[in-house]
Simulated assay, not measured.
Amino acid sequence: MSAEAAAYLDIDSRGVATITLNRPDVHNAFDDKLIAHLIDLITQARDDQRTRVLLLASTGKSFSAGADLGWMRRMADATREDNLRDARNLALLMETLNSFPAPTIAKVQGAVMGGGVGLVSCCDIAIASEAAFFALSEVKLGLAPAAISPYVVAKMGVSQARRYFVSGERFSAIRAAAVGLVHEVVLATELDDKVEHMLATLLANGPQAMRAAKQLAQVANPLKVTPELAEYTAGVIADLRASDEGKEGLRAFLEKTAPAWTRAGK
């Protein structure tokens, strides 16, 4: 484990595998390197016989503020094929976490944006600080929450997803609990203790029984992610990134100006 790593894995004597996002200076935002690294770490935890529970956590003030600005800037100038490859990798990260065989917990604080909402959606249990806030704000940039959409819809339901996908509005931890995105909201000072209590609860259960129970829920889930669906979502984001609207949205965001579409008709 390195304090300099963008993310790191630690497995303790109880069998708790903790993956920690460690880019606090950019609010644990995603880029292509972090995505690949997280896939590797989740795979390592999955394949380690000691793992009984996976805990996803992060350093700093935010859980994850979504896409890294430098990464977004690079991908705006990339080819459609490069954007498609990039979107497929993000989809692979989500599916690798979603299909993790042992129970998974998200420990959530601060900003949870875009792909960060996807990570929370892919965990079995999400516990949030009352100070956490959430947004699927891609539409404000002329984009859409494509790769994460199957998991977010499965977690919060079609009705709520339709609202927050198209509005891009920010919502509180209390609201996130009300729509099913997180399971419990606690005071910031109680977050560590609540997560430890949940870990103790899970560790008291039969490891194989929990895996079988989790698989039952996944098999019964009518909103399964098929290869065709994953490829469709990758195509959506690749097309939007390359579009005039997507490029305008990113330009406006980086320059802190209003995008052209907000001035239409004025």
Rank of each mutant, 00 (worst) to 15 (best):
M72L: 14
T226V: 11
E4N: 07
G265M: 02
P24E: 07
A178H: 15
N83M: 04
P222S: 14
A76G: 08
D77C: 08
M198H: 02
L34A: 10
S2N: 10
L119H: 02
L181N: 04
R80E: 07
L119E: 01
G116P: 01
G180F: 11
L199Q: 00
G70W: 13
M75F: 06
G110V: 03
V236S: 04
Q44E: 11
L97G: 00
I237M: 12
G246T: 11
E231D: 06
S121M: 02
T257H: 15
G142P: 10
E184Q: 02
A260D: 10
R80H: 13
S129W: 04
A234S: 06
A238N: 05
S13V: 03
E190V: 03
F63T: 02
D12N: 01
A111F: 07
V185D: 00
Q160L: 11
V158T: 13
T43C: 11
S129N: 03
F30K: 07
I127Y: 00
V186A: 00
D40V: 10
A213P: 15
T59M: 12
D48C: 08
A238C: 05
A176F: 04
A252V: 15
D192I: 02
V236H: 06
S2F: 08
E231G: 08
G15I: 01
V53Q: 01
G66N: 04
M1Y: 09
A178P: 09
R88D: 05
V166R: 09
H37Q: 15
Q215G: 14
A264K: 13
T257M: 15
D77T: 12
G246V: 11
M113N: 10
T18E: 03
S167Y: 07
I127H: 00
A76D: 11
Y232P: 01
A36T: 15
V195F: 00
A111Y: 12
D239A: 14
G66F: 07
E245V: 13
